[in-house]
Design a protein around this nucleic acid. Structure first.
Lengths: 343, 343
DNA sequence: AACAAAACTTTACGCGCGTCAATTTTTTAA
DNA sequence: TTAAAAAATTGACGCGCGTAAAGTTTTGTT
């Protein structure tokens, strides 16, 4: 590394022996210049410490190479995992991801979109809060910047949606639970923030009806995203007050189930499949911690490899084509049953 | 909102009836202009949709208003929580946080620092991987951009460090465990990535010695950051093979403990304090899930409110003073014991 | 009312790069 | 060998804003 100070592309072009416009071309796409030219530039890059000024680049380009990524709650490892996966795909495509978490609040979600406006991203991948979102404002944002939704759908917002086929997954797990023991009661939030909860609810009713069982619900109250706490508190209540209509509990998501399992443990229930077990518990989503609950949580694993891949592909296609698709695509991917000890 | 297109600050200055340099001054600090001027600008802001171009701003300012925030692993809810807390403090100070996760790998950590170089942040808050870090490269980065370390210290890297006083916390929990039952064995990684593990190790030896007990170790092998998996696998091994020198296990961190508890459960051990219990387990860090293990995990809660606050304060002071401090500060904050059912 | 200080306006330059048009050089194909 | 095509060079403009200097207006004080 030579010490000579390279202040800008002009300086760098000088030391590399190539003209500045060509160097500029190289940085926009190394393949767009002749091989011998590329070699000379890369040789200079080895010797001198130069990096194009990203602010000058973005000021002058029609479009930035940024892609916004907004998730509802990074403190939930499920979303942290998805974010990581998406970030990798974005980087592979030569774009820069910008990760923002809404921390479960609609104000933060809007603040995140506002931050994104400032950096003028070429596109945005958004997992919205759901019912809690300020839908009008989110929709307005998506008219300004191409946006693909994932995880939670908002009617007619964004260019596309990719998520889990909750009908299929609930069907799958209800079927399994009925086959292997008592039919399940659905343990869910009274006022779920996530619109998927509604799909799950009706999928549960359909599945139970199909199997000639009566659907039962336990609807618990609670605000915010502290699902483990809600699952624990309300789980304890329903167990102690003997409010369970059946000894098989299907929790609407794993985080509720994790709290519920903690409550069951404290109440002396023996959760599992064995003949001496008093309770079965299942969840949904295959949370990273679901395998370390006591016992391990039987749950549904979302096909989030497909969800993330298709989401990224779609936003990239929109960006590269430069035009919004005429019809809004919505795809729901099938999940699979993950059997562990709890049910 | 009027429709007239505002393309830049010049246009906006025109419609607000204020000169462009004054408008520029306003956006840099609204308090720096006369109240009546401020009112006219803000009135125009209500009527017209204008936002200064952040790329043009950052190209021309001496310093950006960006602060980088790098954590070792966002999939760990402990760091997700810390990141959220730090982000809020940065925003309150009028800066823009940029959150990056190293995903447990030194390559990603360096890639993150490289990304940060591109955006020329005014300062960086870095929780390094620790022993796994490419320390020379990290150190080089900190000479270019003011950096404050937190969580894991690297000798003489960065302007300051803020973290947990592991000597005090280990002392506290060893003391408690010895008082309330059998002295603990330390369950830890053979080759820990986190340098805090070494402090914990020697703090454990000191505390045990002081209390006239012989220190015992269980050192388990395993790579990467999948601590629950390691705790589970190795926990199962040591329990089944009867390798525990004592029935009280102090895990080096909560994630190991979560895995260990799952293993203990599967092996039919009854963890807790009761007379019929066969094992006690404690952790360290007060992981967000520690209260939902079965039983709840007795652990140490780090004072991360102080750690985050002091880290942010320090980087802001360095940024605002414009000069690096002459001496490197390193502060260790005391943690407190969180008693739950497991020990 | 007079004056100094503070705030604002006008004018102008520069930041680092994208990009264009006109020209020259190099490569490829016939 | 030569013409055509491709690539690089030269020179120049513009992006949107920070910021400086010099002059003008407003404000606050006595």
């Amino acid at each position: 590394m030579t010490d000579k100070k390279i202040r800008n592309m002009e300086d760098f072009a000088a030391v590399s022996g190539i003209s500045r416009p060509t160097v500029s071309k190289y940085f926009n796409d190394p393949q767009s210049v002749r091989k011998s030219t590329r070699a000379r530039i890369e040789e200079a890059l080895e010797k001198y410490d130069y990096r194009p000024n990203i602010y000058a680049i973005n000021q002058n380009r029609r479009q930035t190479k940024n892609i916004g990524l907004v998730v509802p709650n990074l403190a939930d490892p499920f979303f942290a995992g998805i974010a990581r996966s998406i970030e990798a795909l974005i980087v592979d495509a030569g774009f820069s991801p910008l990760l923002l978490s809404s921390h479960g609040g609609p104000e933060q979600e809007l603040a995140n979109l506002e931050s994104l406006r400032a950096i003028k991203p070429a596109g945005v991948l958004l997992a919205p809060l759901g019912r809690a979102s300020d839908i009008d404002q989110v929709k307005k944002f998506t008219t300004e910047i191409p946006t693909v939704l994932f995880d939670a759908n908002l009617d007619n917002v964004g260019e596309a949606f990719f998520g889990c086929d909750n009908t299929q997954t609930i069907d799958l797990i209800v079927d399994y639970l009925c086959r292997s023991g008592e039919p399940p009661v659905l343990f869910e939030m009274e006022n779920p923030v996530n619109p998927n909860a509604f799909r799950k609810r009706s999928a549960y009713v359909d599945a139970m009806t199909r199997l000639s069982h009566e659907p039962h619900f336990i609807r618990v109250s609670g605000d915010g995203w502290d699902f483990e706490e809600i699952g624990y508190r309300e789980g304890k209540r329903v167990i102690l007050q003997n409010l369970l209509p059946t000894r098989t509990v299907l929790c609407s998501n794993d985080r509720l189930a994790i709290g519920f399992l903690a409550a069951a443990f404290e109440c002396g229930e023996k959760v599992g499949l064995g003949p001496d077990c008093t309770l079965r518990v299942a969840g949904h989503d295959d949370h990273p911690f679901a395998r370390y609950t006591c016992p391990g949580l039987t749950t549904i694993s979302q096909d989030y490899a497909s969800i993330t891949a298709r989401s990224v592909e779609t936003i990239l296609r929109i960006i590269e084509s430069g035009e919004r698709p005429e019809t809004r695509e919505a795809s729901y991917f099938e999940g699979r049953l993950v059997m562990r000890g709890s049910a």
